[in-house]
């Protein structure tokens, strides 16, 4: 199978993730969309690695996964603590920093 098709899939996934971030308000969904974007880029990286026959892309993909995991830990903790205090997971409700 032509590896380029994986790139199309990656672009599609990234677009879905990006639009999700732009459109949705629920913090959890937003978070999932961000993850989707990260994974889309992972897919692209692995594909490129395959295309060029080097390992660089795969290594960066590993880094991405580690960062994504760390981000999930911190991010979910924040979301949970916001949910506890405000009883809502909508990102539009947290606007304390707005002047």
């Amino acid at each position: 199978m032509n590896p380029v098709n994986y790139l199309y899939l990656s672009a599609l996934l990234f677009t879905i993730g990006a639009s999700g971030v732009l459109i949705r308000r629920n913090a959890i969904v937003l978070f999932m969309c961000v993850e989707l974007m990260l994974n889309a880029s992972n897919l692209a990286l692995v594909t490129f690695s395959r295309l060029h026959g080097t390992l660089d892309g795969q290594i960066i993909a590993f880094f991405t996964m580690v960062v994504a995991a760390a981000e999930v830990v911190v991010g979910l903790a924040i979301i949970v603590s916001i949910f506890r205090t405000r009883h809502s997971a909508s990102v539009d409700d947290s606007n304390l920093m707005k002047l």
Binding site: V21, I23, R25, L30, V91, D92, N95, M97, K98, L99
Partner: peptide
């Protein structure tokens, strides 16, 4: 004003 507080 540009900073409207909406993450989106």
């Amino acid at each position: 004003r540009v900073q409207n507080g909406f993450v989106r």
